[in-house]
Structure formats: structure tokens, C-alpha cells
């Protein structure tokens, strides 16, 4: 078991190290790395599209490939718990964007295009409203992907959202206290590593650096972990939704 832990650590190191190397300009390794992770890209894309993805035919796959490349370029240690987690998020975002775009284009290029639609388009207010609606839909889709991602992540920790809901403090003050703890964990490199590796909160150290009682932390353990993940991962839309509260 100890061996496995050591091995895991080593591997994650290599992924992140490889990514760092690619960012330095190692184009050879870049191609190799992308080729190595084609199954991962396909899998992620299939999750968003909810269908089988053929690497040779599907447009979504090329979008995903580009997204993966983008992820390599953009990745930094403060964006998400791991590169793969981050890459998965980026791929989902891009693929969703692409699908939406395609849909819109399909509407405009539709054979059923009529004068009425055109007339509607001319109305500025309506156009604005439709844009807003569209934006909301996009947001929802992105959020959904992020939530699914979050659920997967929480699953790794053995936490379900129902449990989080059960532990979620009712009072705002209490929630803010929890958020404080989560921010401490995320901002502290040591705590973050401990959390991601051991998949539990670094209680001992936390109680030292935080005035809150151990019991309070333990009681809301799952909620805190969830908050940590939300802050840690590159959940743009979820964080956006929570921005008033988080900041």
C-alpha cells in the first residue's frame, strides 16, 4: 500500500512535470504527451456529448484536442488539483461552446428560415433578450459540466452531495467560517497537498492555525472539503455563481 501511494505520487509528479516541460518549449514531448492522452480526451468529450466519439470523424474531438492543448499551455499549479482535472474542465468548456455554436449556426442556416424570424431579429429588445437567454443556457451547460466534475471529484473523497447538504450550516456566519477554513486550506500548499493525497482535512495543522474548535471542523468536514474543491478547481461558472459570497 505504501508502495502504491509512492507510485501514485511519482506519477502525478511526472504529469505535472511533463506539462511544465512542454510549457518550456519541448514540442517533441508535446506531441507524445497529447498522443498518450487521446483516450482521456475522447472519454471526456464523450461525457459531454453523451455519445461515442470517433477520432477520425467527429468535429467535437478536434475541438477537444485543441482544448487539451490549450490546457497544457494554460495550466499552472494554482489552477485545479491536477492537470488532468484541469484539462478535463477545459475540454468540457470548449466542447460545450462548440456544440452551442453549432446549434446556433444550424438555426440560422435552417431551411425553415422564414420572414417571421427575421422580423423578430430586428426587434432590438427581443434580440437582447434572446442573447441573454442564450448566455444563460450556455452558463447552465457549463455549470452542469462543472457540477458533474465536482461530483466526480467528491466521489473520490467518498462524499455525496446529499451528505454535503445535510452538513451544510444553516447560518450564514457559520458558512463564512467554513469558507475561511477552506480558503486557508487552499492557499496553504502543504494543506492542499495533504488534502489531495490523503483525501481528508489536515486536522491537526488546521486546529493549530485556526481558532475554531476541532469539533466544529469535523462536524462540517464534508462541507469544507466541497468548498475546498470548488475553490481549488477551475470552476469558472460555479465560482462566478458564488462570487458575491466568496470574495
Amino acid at each position: 500500500m505504501l508502495k502504491r501511494l509512492m507510485y501514485k505520487e511519482k506519477e502525478t509528479d511526472t504529469i505535472e512535470q511533463t506539462v511544465a516541460a512542454i510549457q518550456e518549449g519541448d514540442s517533441e514531448q508535446e506531441n507524445l504527451f497529447i498522443e498518450q492522452y487521446i483516450p482521456f480526451i475522447r472519454k471526456t468529450t464523450a461525457k459531454v456529448c453523451k455519445r461515442y466519439i470517433r477520432t477520425s470523424e467527429d468535429e467535437e474531438f478536434s475541438v477537444a484536442l485543441m482544448a487539451f492543448n490549450e490546457a497544457i499551455k494554460q495550466y499552472s499549479s494554482n489552477k485545479g488539483s491536477s492537470f488532468l482535472s484541469f484539462a478535463s474542465l477545459v475540454i468540457r468548456r470548449r466542447v460545450i461552446d462548440y456544440i452551442r455554436q453549432e446549434q446556433r449556426r444550424r438555426v440560422t442556416l435552417s431551411i425553415d428560415f422564414t420572414e417571421e424570424d427575421k422580423e423578430n431579429m430586428e426587434n432590438l429588445a427581443e434580440v437582447q433578450a434572446s442573447f441573454k437567454e442564450y448566455k444563460e443556457i450556455i452558463e447552465t451547460e457549463h455549470r452542469r459540466e462543472e457540477i458533474l466534475h465536482l461530483q466526480e471529484k467528491l466521489g473520490e473523497f467518498g462524499i455525496s452531495l446529499s451528505e454535503v447538504a445535510a452538513q451544510s450550516p444553516k447560518h450564514q456566519d457559520a458558512r463564512e467560517n467554513m469558507l475561511e477554513i477552506a480558503q486557508v486550506v487552499v492557499s496553504n500548499e502543504k494543506f492542499k497537498e495533504f488534502l489531495l493525497e490523503k483525501q481528508r482535512l489536515p486536522m491537526k495543522e488546521l486546529t493549530k492555525s485556526i481558532s475554531m474548535s476541532r469539533k466544529t471542523i469535523e462536524r462540517n468536514r464534508k462541507y469544507i472539503i466541497t468548498l475546498c474543491l470548488v475553490l481549488l478547481e477551475d470552476y469558472r461558472y460555479l465560482q462566478d455563481y458564488l462570487k458575491e459570497w466568496v470574495s
Partner: peptide
């Protein structure tokens, strides 16, 4: 956040689940 058979989990803008 999650849809269940009998209930769903909702996250408010204020961090409440």
C-alpha cells in the same frame, strides 16, 4: 447540483447546500 428520486440538492449563491 444533483437530482434525486425524491429531492434535489441546490446550492445557493451564498454557499448553502
Amino acid at each position: 447540483m444533483e437530482k434525486n428520486k425524491r429531492y434535489m440538492i441546490v446550492m445557493t449563491g451564498k454557499g448553502e447546500f
